[in-house]
């Protein structure tokens, strides 16, 4: 919120820059594959938690931002929107992360 983005792109033209339906389907296929990988870990009981959880988290974060970037158009929309969303995300992560730390959440594993 500290920068002035007075001369930003006109929102009208960018409707034509939107990706094609084909691209959207591709994105969905990738999301489906990652989801399948995620679910697949459920049957891999031999994987220790120290490996499994970070891998799951990585895949989750990837899906999260992939949806935000393509379906929510953050990739080609104004950075202002990204800022609002990411501000909320970062604030929530930090504040609730500290709260969970105060509850010694991470020690229990």
């Amino acid at each position: 919120m500290s920068t002035d983005t007075a001369e930003h792109v006109d929102t009208h033209d960018e409707a034509h820059d939107h990706p094609s339906d084909r691209k959207y389907v591709q994105v969905a296929i990738i999301l489906a594959i990652v989801t399948a990988l995620e679910v697949g870990t459920y049957w891999m009981e031999s994987v220790p938690g120290e490996v499994l959880i970070p891998v799951l988290m990585l895949m989750m974060v990837y899906k999260f931002f992939y949806v935000a970037a393509w379906f929510m158009h953050l990739k080609f929309d104004s950075p202002m929107f990204t800022k609002f969303f990411v501000a909320g995300l970062i604030l929530a992560t930090i504040v609730y992360g500290i709260m969970l730390t105060a509850f010694e959440f991470w020690h229990k594993g």
Partner: peptide, 24 residues
């Protein structure tokens, strides 16, 4: 002022706020 639509900006502020709701 930003060249952005009021309505979209309103929705994004709301979604930023929702992050804190679901975070809690």
């Amino acid at each position: 002022g930003t060249g952005l639509s009021n309505n979209k900006l309103l929705m994004w502020t709301f979604l930023g706020s929702e992050c804190l709701l679901f975070g809690g």
